[in-house]
Simulated assay, not measured.
Amino acid sequence: MEISVVIPLLNEEESLIELHDWIANIMQSNRYLYEIIFIDDGSTDNSWQIIKQLSSKHESVKGIRFQRNFGKSQALDAGFAIAQGNVVITMDADLQDNPEEIPELYNLITSQNFDLISGWKKKRYDNVVTKNIPSKLFNAVARKTSGLQLHDFNCGLKAYKNEVIKNIKVSGEMHRYIPVLAKNEGYTNIGEKVVQHQARKYGETKFGINRFINGFLDLITISFLSKFGKRPMHFFGLWGTLMFLFGTSLAFYIGAYKLYKVYNGIKTILVTDNPWFYIALTSMILGTLLFLAGFIGELIIRNKNDEKHYKIREKLNL
């Protein structure tokens, strides 16, 4: 198998047949051995029925149907798990990603030995206020935080070596940061290609302005996990120790100063009337809690399993 095309979707019944025929025409004209994997992320329209029709006519079409809507990241993870192609290409099902890009993406991976190629929709046909401007801000922050100089982290059109997608775990809403996940696993030969972006032909976008808020929160999460995900004690233990030492030192100072005044017959207030006493006590408690958080994090990492956070209802040609 040369190419696997992984397509997550939600309520895209109008575009599926056209998208399949377009991809199949590209593959056959270039004589690629290929498979098309549709992952139905809980559609409520006729998307799954159309996928069933396509899979019955074409052995190259495979399908996964989720029990309900679990999210794009989970859909990609399910597709990655079964993808057999040497090169895996992801794209959205709304016809805004152009299948004509597939041959060049494939060649960049196979001929120039890239681990991952991320698409860049340099010219977009989206709403400027709700998508373009927030996207530019989001990508600027993502570049600064991740160190990857990509212009469009959100672009669904990407190409990967098979080994890359088999060695990363996409969960939550981390599909935006697959290049960052790949980099964290040691795949540093990451490139970018300008790709065509097309206006939506059918239906409406499934993503609102809230996806950028979630995106920033996910960026903070992945930045933390990339540094401390496998050693949480290094973060929580450090801050816990510093806070506990600060509180303890402050408590000793308050106590010593109180004894000094008593010894010299100087009138003084009760220790509990001193606001610094409560600051010291709070610091020691917070320090202890942070230290315990580090221990608990270490225990979770050592005992966690790789349970999938989605339920598959039905499979086709698998």
Rank of each mutant, 00 (worst) to 15 (best):
M1D: 12
E2F: 06
I3D: 00
V6W: 01
V6Q: 01
I7T: 00
L9I: 04
L10R: 09
S15T: 13
E18V: 10
D21G: 04
I23G: 01
N25S: 15
Y32V: 04
L33A: 13
L33R: 13
Y34S: 00
Y34W: 06
Y34G: 02
I39S: 00
D41S: 05
G42R: 07
G42C: 11
N46Q: 07
I51Q: 03
Q53T: 06
Q53C: 05
S56K: 13
S56W: 05
S60Q: 08
V61R: 00
K62G: 04
G63K: 08
F66R: 06
G71T: 00
K72H: 04
S73I: 02
Q74Y: 07
Q74H: 06
D77M: 15
A78S: 14
F80V: 06
I82W: 02
I82D: 00
I82T: 05
V87M: 03
M91K: 01
A93E: 03
Q96A: 11
Q96H: 09
D97C: 15
D97Y: 04
N98T: 15
E104S: 12
N107T: 12
L108M: 15
I109E: 02
I109M: 00
S111D: 12
N113P: 07
F114V: 05
D115T: 01
G119P: 05
K121I: 09
K121C: 09
K122L: 12
K123C: 06
R124T: 14
V129T: 13
T130D: 08
I133F: 09
I133H: 07
P134D: 10
L137S: 07
V141H: 05
S146R: 03
L150A: 04
F153N: 01
C155D: 06
G156T: 02
L157D: 00
K158S: 03
K158W: 00
A159W: 01
E163K: 12
E163D: 08
V170P: 00
R176G: 02
Y177W: 02
I178W: 00
I178M: 04
K183A: 11
K183M: 14
E185L: 09
E185P: 04
Y187H: 02
N189D: 09
E192V: 03
H197Q: 05
T205N: 12
F207S: 11
I209F: 15
N210A: 14
I213Q: 10
L219N: 03
F228N: 06
G229R: 11
K230Q: 15
P232A: 09
M233W: 12
M233Q: 09
H234S: 14
F236P: 01
F236Y: 09
W239Y: 12
G240K: 01
T241N: 09
M243Y: 10
F244S: 12
L245P: 07
L245N: 07
G247M: 07
G247H: 05
S249Y: 07
Y253A: 13
K258F: 13
Y260I: 10
T268D: 03
L270G: 11
L270M: 10
N274M: 00
N274I: 11
W276S: 13
A280T: 08
A280R: 03
L281F: 06
L281T: 08
T282P: 05
M284S: 07
I285W: 05
T288H: 10
T288M: 15
L290W: 12
A293C: 13
I296H: 11
G297P: 08
L299Q: 08
R302E: 10
D306S: 14
H309F: 12
H309A: 07
K311N: 11
N317W: 05
L318P: 01
